[in-house]
Design a binder for these strands. Structure first.
Lengths: 246, 246
DNA sequence: ACCTGAACACCGTTCAAGT
DNA sequence: ACCTGAACACCGTTCAAGT
């Protein structure tokens, strides 16, 4: 508990509050010890601590030892609740998927816009936890929140009259795009050197040899142009799914 | 050099051959030492050794210490040629991108088929080196081989009459899809537990609660059905790019 | 049943000292 | 300039011993 960070601080403040509360007359059985007992170890507590570290310092800092330190215990103790690091990552992902907004599925409006809204919400959730997007890419979630999302996408594709076989394969495409774009963004915002990499790419595109890479040179500005790429991308993929028979 | 593997073996055989060759009369200056000197350390040698380890045991086994061991030296020695682990991974990726088949760009046939052929080649290259697909997802390559691939895609989109602005954003979509699908597959074939995860997902889809997930239950077989998903996906994304104005 | 300290078998990276 | 051994500051996971 040497490193100061926001999580530790807020825990400390919370503990202070509890301690102060315990000193008011309304509290009948004050703890015998000065400092309140540390919270009992639970799977959920471990996942929350891990998520806090991931948001603050990136997924690569979510190590068993660091999570344990945050919870004022030893790494070995975590293995009662978590099988291994991969299990922890999967649990973290499942946890944040609960916050995806699925309400557009039953709202009014054109189905393509509603589908894009759900996908955008999913991408934004992963953007907010950029480190997890990469593990979402690599793992195969099968938790209830993931299933709800898939169900939601299938319902909207059906509402749009997309044939069943195209819809079934289409959800893979949509999820791959939504997850992939968040993973890319996650990599960009996560690592310090990623900005250098991005600028190296922009420089490479802008300064591309006109003879060897004529199209890149011609379209350099378009290639790196700003705009609502996310919305356009969703509409393009949706249109492709709807228009392409198997 | 305790662990036996194919790379070590083939290096040994190669060394044997050199030794035998050195004993023939045609060789004027035989080495004073019995065993031939180990090959000089080069950046390319390091990358090749790293790729061999990645193919054999996965990217997570490509550690500085393991690559160094393979090359019969210490990890510290690699830092003369490689800045850090990320640099090594980027160099490995650039190396394999050289093997992508870009010839469909100038071949005969419908542009959509030729575009899909190039993308399929790219995906297959990443499939053959599954561990690198994930790092391709996270990093921003800007090497000459990457630029050639982008140039190729832009040329084919232009041949198809896709408007410049859609083509410029479209290459991102195509690359994201082609890279993402390989990264998924790479994760699947790379880790032992990934098969369990996949079967858990299939079981979760097949056994989905009919009341809660009616669409998943209805389409379970379609969702996990075999077929040329890669080709269909490329056609769908291409169609979407061509049909969706900004 | 849960928790712990200690151990095992690893990592990436740096650096002074050698050649 | 290149290479090396040793060190530093970490990892995940296991396990016997405690409560």
């Amino acid at each position: 508990m040497v490193v100061a960070n926001m999580v530790v601080t807020s825990l400390f403040v919370a503990n202070m509050f509890v301690t102060l509360g315990a000193m008011t007359p309304s509290n009948e059985r004050p703890s015998r010890r000065e400092r309140p007992a540390k919270p009992a170890l639970t799977r959920d507590g471990i996942i929350q601590a891990a998520l806090a570290i991931a948001r603050a310092d990136g997924l690569e800092k979510v190590t068993m030892r660091r999570v344990a330190e945050q919870l004022d215990t030893g790494a070995a103790s975590l293995y009662v609740y978590v099988r291994n690091t991969a299990d922890l990552h999967a649990a973290m992902l499942d946890e944040i998927l609960a916050t995806v907004d699925l309400t557009p599925a039953t709202a009014a409006g054109p189905w393509r816009q509603r589908l894009a809204a759900v996908l955008t919400s999913y991408s934004l959730v992963l953007f907010a936890n950029p480190a997890l997007a990469q593990s979402a890419m690599a793992s195969r979630p099968s938790g209830p929140n993931y299933l709800s999302l898939i169900e939601c996408l299938l319902t909207l594709l059906k509402a749009g009259g997309v044939p069943d076989d195209q819809a079934a394969w289409g959800v893979d495409l949509l999820m791959l795009y939504a997850t992939g774009i968040a993973a890319e963004q996650g990599a960009l915002s996560g690592r310090a050197e990623a900005h250098d990499e991005y600028h190296a790419l922009v420089a490479a595109l802008r300064g591309a040899d006109t003879a060897r890479y004529p199209e890149i040179a011609r379209l350099a500005d378009q290639l790196v142009s700003d705009g609502d790429r996310l919305a356009w991308g969703f509409q393009a993929v949706i249109a492709g799914i709807a228009a392409t028979p198997r």
